[in-house]
Deep mutational scan, measured.
Amino acid sequence: FHVTIHVGDITFHIHGVSEEEVKKLEELVRRGADWREIKKTIEEIEK
Rank of each mutant, 00 (worst) to 15 (best):
F1G: 07
F1I: 07
H2Q: 08
H2S: 12
H2C: 12
H2I: 14
H2T: 15
H2Y: 14
H2F: 12
H2P: 05
H2N: 14
V3Y: 13
V3K: 03
V3Q: 02
V3L: 12
V3T: 04
T4R: 04
T4G: 01
T4S: 07
T4Q: 04
T4M: 06
T4E: 07
T4L: 07
T4C: 05
I5F: 05
I5H: 00
I5K: 00
I5V: 07
H6M: 13
H6I: 14
H6S: 11
H6T: 15
H6R: 13
H6P: 01
H6L: 10
V7T: 05
V7G: 02
V7A: 06
V7W: 12
V7E: 02
G8T: 02
G8H: 03
G8Q: 06
D9T: 14
D9R: 14
D9V: 11
D9C: 15
D9N: 15
I10P: 00
I10A: 09
I10T: 09
I10E: 05
T11W: 09
T11Q: 03
T11C: 04
T11L: 04
T11V: 12
T11H: 11
F12S: 00
F12H: 01
H13K: 05
H13T: 11
H13W: 06
I14T: 02
I14C: 03
I14Q: 01
I14A: 03
H15A: 06
H15V: 09
G16Y: 13
G16P: 04
G16T: 09
G16A: 10
G16K: 04
G16R: 05
G16I: 11
V17E: 02
V17T: 03
V17N: 03
V17H: 02
V17S: 03
V17C: 07
S18F: 05
S18L: 05
S18M: 07
E19H: 13
E19T: 07
E20M: 13
E20Q: 11
E21T: 14
E21S: 12
E21C: 09
E21P: 01
V22F: 13
V22Q: 06
V22L: 13
V22I: 09
V22C: 07
V22S: 05
K23M: 13
K23R: 11
K23Y: 15
K23E: 09
K23D: 06
K24R: 13
K24P: 01
K24A: 09
L25H: 00
L25Y: 02
L25K: 00
L25S: 00
E26D: 10
E26A: 13
E26R: 14
E26V: 13
E26L: 15
E26F: 15
E26T: 15
E26N: 11
E27I: 10
E27F: 14
E27A: 14
E27C: 06
E27M: 14
E27Q: 11
L28M: 12
L28T: 02
L28D: 01
L28W: 05
L28V: 06
V29D: 01
V29R: 05
V29K: 05
R30P: 00
R30C: 04
R30K: 11
R30V: 08
R30L: 11
R31H: 07
R31M: 08
R31F: 06
R31G: 08
G32L: 06
G32E: 03
G32M: 06
G32I: 02
G32W: 11
G32P: 02
G32N: 08
A33C: 06
D34N: 14
D34G: 13
D34W: 05
D34K: 10
W35G: 03
W35V: 08
W35Q: 04
W35C: 05
W35E: 06
W35N: 02
W35M: 09
W35T: 04
R36T: 11
R36A: 10
R36Q: 13
E37V: 11
E37C: 06
E37G: 01
E37N: 03
E37I: 08
E37R: 02
I38Q: 00
I38Y: 04
I38A: 01
I38D: 00
I38E: 00
K39I: 10
K39M: 14
K39Y: 15
K39L: 13
K39P: 00
K40D: 10
K40G: 07
K40W: 13
K40N: 10
T41M: 14
T41Y: 15
T41V: 14
T41G: 05
T41H: 12
I42K: 01
I42S: 01
I42A: 03
I42N: 00
I42V: 08
E43M: 09
E43V: 08
E43K: 08
E43G: 05
E43D: 12
E43S: 06
E43R: 07
E43W: 10
E44F: 06
E44G: 09
E44M: 09
E44T: 07
E44V: 06
I45V: 04
I45T: 03
I45A: 03
E46H: 11
E46G: 11
E46L: 15
E46F: 15
K47G: 10
K47P: 04
K47V: 10
K47H: 12
K47E: 10
K47Q: 12
